[in-house]
Design a protein around this nucleic acid. Structure first.
Lengths: 343, 343
DNA sequence: GTTAGCACTCATTAAGAGAGAGTGCTAACA
DNA sequence: TGTTAGCACTCTCTCTTAATGAGTGCTAAC
């Protein structure tokens, strides 16, 4: 059995209606609501075919039909009219995107907020990949007797600092010298690469400055070890999920929100390594907690390099055309802002 | 009508039972469960009195009784056996508290996690009061042509940094000189105090360095303006609320979680300006969203100065003795850890 | 190939009947 | 006078039953 134009029209009608109402729809209602020029009986026959093809399903005997995951997939791939944001919407996003761009963290949280507000769904934003950011420079700043502030500047502009212990009689020159060795060895290397032999090299070269080196290395190691784990997903609009009729059940809410507290599962949803825009529908993402959810995700770049991803999570019954348009435009806008910011 | 010993016993029984079961309890059940040596009829009479006194109430005619806010209050003030943690529990908390004390933010989040796990309720932790922290030192670090990293060290050890724009031809000496002026004028002042005339003074003294000063001032202002707002409450274990039978209603969950997203209302719950341990029961905290919740909060200190607060939020039906003991011990432990950490 | 008609299915809703827990009141008792 | 037993009454909760209504699949006619 093949899809023909009429089947396509009916499937589109079912998906659109279900997205709008969240109610199963029957043949009679389709005939009434959508002007397809055929009777409900004909639609009924076609719907039986669509069910055989796996595009729609019945929650129970003699309820209306709802789209299956495959139905949504066909809709997204073949039936949907791709939406383009109008200039007003575009301008709004661009205006908002350029508002707070000083701190990278601010950009992330603001993007997340914006996404969830525009879609009324839950947004996921993954900040720049730390491991990919390369070591720029190490500074020591005087703080208190026996303590200095260690500032690590990465080449992507991120700055981290920690207070570390040094000998009481450490002079500024010695500190300067130590920093210099680190800077020469490590500049331009990613934090992952630094991990290996390099540290030992530094250690042997500066064996006199035991305490300082030890503490610096400890701190660096802490930062390196964190770097993977520290890629926290920024979540926005989680409460929007509570407004979705599919989450009127408290048990579902509980399991969903439990996953929201973990980072790794959320990261998986985003496909940060899969460049460009991705649509994952229902069971397509392997985690059973999200089998009733879809994710629209896309990556963003800085200077041509993919460094992070944003996404929108909602029930499979979501307005794909709209959300795809928003996510797509958002990542472009983000890429632009971040690239401009870095100069 | 006065409270006598028997009334007290009965009230204690009602509160304890309701805390444990979340079900209204009737006279017969009390007579059966608690060995008070009188019949259900007598208890019934006493319960009528307790209701007149406002300590218990009926959800509806011919249901059992549940404690009123006033009943919990009387229980907490007069009836409760204060609990003391056993050494095992104490050691656990102390061990956990000293685990991650490098970053103040880590201490906060870890405390929050610990509190919520120990109580199975929601924890609120308010970090050190930023406005109270005093300006320590300003550094400029070279970054890229036309950009420097501005590092602001506060005297409490907190460090903030931002990248700012400067003229392309700015020399290290000039930067040094500008930083010096800022440092002389501002050291030891709280960020609130800095706000006023001082900035103008600096401005006039260094009028040649227009761009640099402008950007530095902008950034400082941003930090100053943020300082109030930036006292974010760290929430933990919000999901625990979903396990409470009083929140089996999705509407309640929604309003509760909505408030969780805002900072100011939560701050109010903590009474950060009211030193020591506080118990706020039900309607005692003015916000109607929390009229069915109680908060146990306490402040913590660094070097004798009250700088923050922690709290536990739960349904009015909570195990006051246990939670009070935990919060109390936790703030003591926190005070100790932070004081030691600062030296 | 399309449509009208019809019997059938199944969730949802409303109404009604018990059951159960608890109360307040009264009268008897120590 | 305080305590207790007994009893009628109230109100929620649960279970059953019946009615409703949307929708289907099948058959036969167009």
């Amino acid at each position: 059995m093949q899809m023909d134009e009429r089947k396509r029209k009916i499937l589109r009608a079912i998906v659109q209606d279900y997205i709008a109402t969240a109610e199963p729809i029957g043949s009679r209602t389709i005939a009434r609501k959508f002007d397809l020029g055929v009777s409900s009986a004909t639609i009924r026959n076609e719907m039986a075919d669509l069910e055989d093809l796996g595009f729609i399903e019945q929650p129970y005997t003699s309820a209306g039909r709802i789209p299956s995951d495959a139905g949504y997939r066909y809709f997204v791939d073949c039936l949907m009219d791709p939406k383009v944001l109008n200039t007003e919407e575009k301008e709004f996003i661009e205006r908002e995107s350029t508002k707070r761009i000083h701190e990278i963290q601010e950009v992330i949280t603001h993007t997340s907020k914006l996404l969830s507000e525009l879609t009324n769904l839950t947004s996921l934003v993954l900040g720049p990949h730390k491991a990919k950011s390369t070591f720029g420079k190490l500074h020591f700043l005087p703080y208190q007797p026996g303590q200095v502030i260690m500032v690590i500047v990465k080449e992507n502009g991120a700055v981290e600092n920690h207070i570390i212990e040094v000998g009481e009689n450490q002079t500024a020159e010695e500190l300067q010298q130590v920093a210099e060795v680190f800077n020469q060895k490590m500049r331009g290397y990613s934090l992952n690469q630094v991990k290996r032999s390099m540290l030992h090299e530094i250690y042997s070269e500066l064996s006199r400055q035991r305490l300082l080196i030890d503490n610096t290395l400890d701190m660096l190691r802490a930062i390196l070890d964190d770097s993977e784990e520290d890629e926290r997903i920024c979540l926005g609009g989680t409460l929007n999920m509570l407004n979705q009729p599919e989450f009127k059940d408290l048990g579902k809410v509980k399991t969903l929100f439990k996953v929201f507290e973990e980072n790794e599962p959320l990261k998986k949803l985003l496909h940060p390594h899969q460049e460009g825009l991705n649509v994952t529908i229902g069971g397509e993402n392997m985690m059973k907690e999200f089998k009733d959810c879809s994710v629209i995700s896309a990556t963003y770049k800085v200077n041509g390099l993919t460094i992070g991803a944003v996404g929108v999570l909602g029930p499979t019954r979501m307005d794909y055309a709209k959300v795809i348009a928003i996510v797509d435009f958002m990542t472009r806008s983000l890429t632009e802002v971040l690239t401009k910011r870095r100069r």
